[in-house]
Structure formats: C-alpha cells, structure tokens
Amino acid sequence: MSNREKLLEIDRHNKRNIMQTQDNTQRIFRTYPSGDASCLIDMLQEVQEHFGYLPDLEMQKVARHVDIPVSRVYGVATFYNQFRFQPLGKFVIKVCRGTACHVKGSFSILTTLESELGIKAGQTTKDLLFTIETVACIGACSIAPVIAVNDEFHGGLTTKSLQKLLKSWQRQCTESEVSDECV
C-alpha cells in the first residue's frame, strides 16, 4: 500500500468510527453493571478502542456509570501509559528512546520534531495530522536513531533528513485533501 492509500484508508476508518460512535458507547455502557468501579479500566479501554482516545465527555459518562468522581477516572486514566487524551493524528510518529537510539542522538530527533510541530510527545497537532509518541525500544537498533511512522521505519536519521521527511508528509496531506474534495 502506498502512503496515499494508507491515508485514505485512515480517513475512511475515522468516518466509520464517527458514524458508529453513538451505538458503540451505548453498547459499552450496557455491557458493564452500573455502580461497579472495578470495571473502570475495562470500560476505559473499550471507549478508547472506539474513539482512538478518551474524550472528556466519555470519561464523564464513565464516571457517572461507575459512580465515582470524574477526577478519579481521569487520575486512573493518566496513570496508565496506554490511554490517550487526544485523537491520533494521521501520522503517528513513534520516536525510539531505547539505549542505542539515545546514544545515536534520538533526543535531538525528538526535540526537533517537537519544535517543528509545536507539540510535545504524547500530543497531536491541532490540525489532527501529527502525533508524537515515544517508545522504549522498537527493536531496530541497527539503524538507530529510528522512528516509526504509521508502522513504517525510518532509520539512520539526522535532524536534516527528518525535516525532509516532515515536509514530504505535509505535502501528501495537502494532496489528499484536494483529492477528498474531488470525491
């Protein structure tokens, strides 16, 4: 699949998600008994599966359902790395922060990305195009420093080559928007 096809696929997936949202959350809430806080993590996981992240409103609904304060739901959710609080961007950039990559300068790769995109690791840009995440080691030490973008690896990076990559993704996005309008 080319990158462009992948993008279109993601778009379709997102639209499907939005359409099914209503039914899905109702189903989640039906599955779990109300007032039972032991189901909290399971529910949050299901909510995240359907939205790709935990929207504020859904956390409030979960809180009401299991009958604990919203602050506690949010506290529990932020404790675990698996939960996200913003939707994923079209490009999910995972920066490897393993030992090999670190030695080869992955920290400056990360800070370059953060300053170029104006967001921090774990966040998504306002236009919903890019998400930066850090991972402990993605097992590609031979090509350190490495990033994985929508699960495609880019190794041996320098800040220069990274900037080039970023430009090309940005270009792809503008193209795909044009094609969207044509449909």
Binding site: I68, S71, R72, Y74, F79
Partner: peptide, 13 residues
C-alpha cells in the same frame, strides 16, 4: 473525597 464526598481534585499522571 472521603470527608466531603466531592472529589473535585485527585492525583494525576
């Protein structure tokens, strides 16, 4: 949480 049962604040991250 325990004495006021409001739970407006909690630990995060």
């Amino acid at each position: 949480h325990e004495s006021q049962q409001v739970g407006a604040i909690d630990f995060v991250h």
